[in-house]
């Protein structure tokens, strides 16, 4: 065996054991991460914190909790979704920020001095949510394929900004109900019941779309497309009854309680789904985005609690 002179021999191009660390976070992605983490923190706070008690009124308490949780879910979910979209359009910051704003406004609703600022924030969130629907619709239509299944699956989620608008509306609704009494209050309850009931049906449509995208590969994926719409329909029916006929709606109440329970249960299922992605939680930077959305199921709790509030008012303020 001969030894040859080689210009290449012995060249060590690079040590193959670089220090630990990954490629730097950059551009909008960095801010997105910050928002994401802040959002998750706020969301946790919202769930844990007892809202400032205006009055020991179970309806208002449920309404406020629901509006807060819904806003928190929207905030975290849109922060993650828009992070996945690299915040390529600055307008994408608006959604999560509006959700955070309305969540705080609802949380701190008892502070009299800031009531009008809070109302403005909640109104703005409603408007931004409605505009978001337009943005998302445009995003879907401008892609090749237009209004196609694949764009509905993977382009901007068509109904998601509606949840932001709803969080604003529920916050405003809580303010209104705090000031209403008697028959007026019951009428508010009926309207609230209608809004929440319809929202549950729309939300179900969105869940059905996304779980269809996931091919309903786990039978549990059928649960959130059966119980919430049943609860929504029952709530709408309850609201349609004559106001004089105050009575208990046991089925609607049970379904709403179950729907509220789907928030934490669904979150657990989604956490399991994330663990089934390649690399699981150790690969969280990918799995959290490509797996099932962790913050999404909480929105069912956020809708069910105002639904219970509405039902209570429809029933004539009867305590359980």
């Amino acid at each position: 065996m001969v030894q040859y002179r080689s210009p290449c021999r012995g060249s060590r191009v690079r040590r193959p054991d670089p220090p630990h660390g990954t490629a730097g976070v950059r551009d909008g992605a960095g801010l997105g991460t910050v928002l994401l983490l802040a959002g998750l923190g706020l969301f946790a706070g919202a769930v844990l914190a007892e809202p400032a008690p205006v009055a020991p009124d179970p309806s208002l308490r449920n309404l406020r909790r629901g509006a807060t949780i819904l806003a928190g879910s929207v905030m975290a979910d849109s922060a993650m979704e828009h992070f996945q979209g690299s915040y390529h359009n600055p307008a994408m910051y608006v959604g999560p920020m509006a959700a955070a704003g309305t969540m705080l406004a609802t949380l701190r609703g008892g502070d009299r001095n800031r009531a009008s600022a809070a109302r403005t924030m909640q109104g703005a969130a409603t408007m931004i949510g409605l505009m978001g629907l337009g943005f998302h619709g445009y995003n879907i239509l401008k892609r090749p394929g237009g209004l196609s299944w694949n764009n509905l699956f993977y382009a901007a989620p068509v109904g998601a900004p509606g949840a932001l608008a709803l969080a604003g509306v529920l916050g405003l609704g809580e303010r209104r109900m705090a000031g209403s009494r008697g028959p007026e209050r019951r009428e508010d309850g009926r309207i609230l019941g209608g809004v929440v009931g319809a929202s549950l049906l729309v939300t179900t449509a969105e869940i059905a779309l996304l779980h269809f995208r996931g091919a309903f590969h786990n039978p549990a994926m059928f649960v959130p497309v059966t119980i919430p719409p049943a609860a929504g329909a029952a709530l709408c029916l309850a609201g349609l009854r004559r106001p004089e006929a105050a009575r208990r709606h046991r089925l609607a109440r049970a379904l709403l309680h179950l729907t509220a329970l789907l928030g934490p249960v669904g979150t657990a299922f989604h956490a399991f789904g994330v663990s089934r992605e390649m690399g699981g939680w150790a690969n969280w930077r990918q799995s959290l985005l490509s797996g099932p959305p962790m913050p999404a199921p909480a929105s069912l709790t956020g809708l069910a609690l105002p639904g219970l509030a509405a039902l209570r008012e429809i029933e004539g303020g009867m305590d359980e």
């Binding site: 040859y4 290449c8 060590r12 193959p16 054991d17 670089p18 490629a23 690399g279």
Partner: peptide, 27 residues
């Protein structure tokens, strides 16, 4: 290679590339 220790790399790929970088074959 900056991602060497990140989830983008697994042991078998590290083994292949380490071998390629460190063991330049003799002619």
């Amino acid at each position: 290679l900056a991602k060497w220790a990140s989830p983008s790399w697994n042991d078998q790929t590290r083994q292949v590339v380490r071998e390629r970088l460190l063991n330049i074959p003799r002619p």
